[in-house]
């Protein structure tokens, strides 16, 4: 069972996925300087009505093993300690401890 922060992140991911196209359309109208200011303002107000977990910036890549939010090595999706453990256990193809 993933921890609560991971569950929240999963929720955010699904929210972003579900609302992305509509949000993009509103963003296009709101940021388009060739449209009348009234229309752009209305689009911006609509954008503000979207929930918190529909914004892509609320999504955070957490450790897929432990859910840790910091020190995540994005190439493997693992936090630094899980990365070390898995690398030492030869579970990550092509990763080897440096020694010279």
């Amino acid at each position: 069972m993933p921890n609560a922060r991971v569950l929240r992140d999963i929720k955010a991911r699904h929210g972003v996925n579900a609302n992305e196209i509509l949000r993009r359309a509103y963003l296009y109208v709101a940021r388009n300087q060739t449209l009348p200011a009234q229309v752009r303002f209305q689009a911006q107000l609509q954008l503000n009505t979207f929930g918190r977990y529909t914004r892509p910036s609320t999504v955070k890549n957490r450790c897929t093993e432990t859910g840790r939010g910091r020190g995540v090595i994005s190439e493997f999706g693992l936090c630094r300690f899980q990365f070390r453990q898995k690398a030492l256990a030869n579970e990550l193809p092509g990763v080897k401890k440096a020694s010279w």
Binding site: V16, E20, Y28, T34
Partner: peptide
């Protein structure tokens, strides 16, 4: 160089790849 908002339409959708992050 007026802002037309085209970049919001041109950018790829990020949602489909986002939901597959956690195995």
């Amino acid at each position: 160089s007026v802002r037309t908002g085209a970049k919001y339409l041109r950018a790829r959708l990020r949602g489909p790849s986002m939901i597959n992050y956690y195995p």
